[in-house]
Design a protein around this nucleic acid. Structure first.
Lengths: 206, 206
DNA sequence: GGAAGAAACATACAGTCTGTATGTTTCATG
DNA sequence: CATGAAACATACAGACTGTATGTTTCTTCC
């Protein structure tokens, strides 16, 4: 039933393999050099394919970058989902756990630079928001909706709240990513974000 | 005693004039096309100077962009300062007023794109944070420190709190900037941000 | 007031990159 | 196995950035 590990032989497999090589190489080079300084010759060389193969698989450099961003966002969402799935009955606990999981994953240097710093600039704010809403913020929005429905969270416009909190969490992750002492920074960021959530929380019986 | 309007004649005035022309032209073109697509030939042409003049005044394209960002940040900080200066005795009111002033100013399309979206990507996160800390976030941090000192705000690590709230406010401004109904979006964003601040507030007598 | 030096500006050039156009190999299919 | 298409490789045109070199304008000092 799985479609990924089924190793579809032939051209499909060939294409998938080069795309995978390009994705891995691009991710590394984009993270190290930034979008603008990452040249397509360098990426193709690192991937072990020609530049022609790159332009056959992707419309342009931005499309390759977009695929990298979408892949990383999907990986992150999956990871957070896995950590919060078992907490469906306690929405506030799920939010707190999800926040911590997000901080840990999103503060990885490559994620911070590629997805959060360069993503909006390269893809444009709208396109980037679409990817983010489909992956990262979706999880957050669902969590907030659940908490609000359970009366554990102050009633506020959901989309706006999700966006604002997402911004706060992104900035916190970037802070952790560049901190000299990441562990301490992560603890501090978690404390502040928990305080923000607490401030918006409502007691269980009301 | 004024040094700006004193029209320093000669070469200093000549340089200042070309820099001003370049700044204005660059601001417009960066806002319209983005950093990457904004070519130095186009900027020089729009400013009415040669490309040589541009490279004489600035080390490279990024330095010109940096000057644009710093100028816009300084303008914003000055504007917020002016609106909150008279509220020094009520720190929470100053924070709320400042938030609204920030949302109004930072949701201008050119500010959103140049300073908030492209700034970190072009200048690098650290350099951008330095400019932001010197201008925008400084005002916020001072306001938070005052409120905390007065016991009106939950005691939290100041720098982290300022960064996190700054992220929330930036994201809110971007939301307003691209909203179909900016007035409504601004009201919603202000409501959410006020709720966040309220959640962190402490009663006056304690 | 004029000559020497520096600052501001303009032009020309080298190197690199992006995206496309054209050619070649590998695979699918009847 | 021959035909067509997909995947890949190479060659090319156009554009841009940053620098090097040349010219004009101002300053300064004798």
């Amino acid at each position: 039933m799985q479609e990924e590990s089924a190793t579809p032989d032939g051209q499909a497999r060939r294409s998938a393999a080069t795309r995978a090589r390009l994705l891995a190489a691009a991710r590394e080079i984009f993270a190290a050099d930034g979008y603008q300084a990452a040249s397509t010759p360098a990426i193709a060389r690192a991937a072990g394919v020609s530049r022609g193969a790159l332009y056959h698989q992707y419309d342009d450099k931005a499309a390759l970058f977009r695929d990298v961003v979408a892949t990383m966002q999907a990986e992150l969402a999956e990871r957070i989902d896995a950590e919060t799935r078992m907490l469906a009955d306690d929405p506030m606990a799920a939010l707190r756990t999800g926040t911590l999981a997000f901080l840990r994953a999103a503060s990885a240097p490559d994620f911070a630079r590629i997805v959060m710093i360069e993503g909006p600039a390269v893809l444009g704010r709208d396109d980037w928001s679409g990817i983010d809403r489909a992956a990262g913020t979706a999880t957050l929005r669902d969590g907030l909706a659940a908490a609000m429905a359970a009366g554990r969270l102050a009633p506020l416009p959901l989309e706006t709240l999700a966006t604002v909190l997402s911004g706060a969490m992104n900035e916190a992750a970037l802070l952790v990513a560049t901190a000299p002492d990441p562990a301490a920074a992560l603890a501090g960021a978690a404390t502040v974000l928990d305080a923000v959530l607490d401030g918006l929380a409502r007691p269980a019986n009301r």
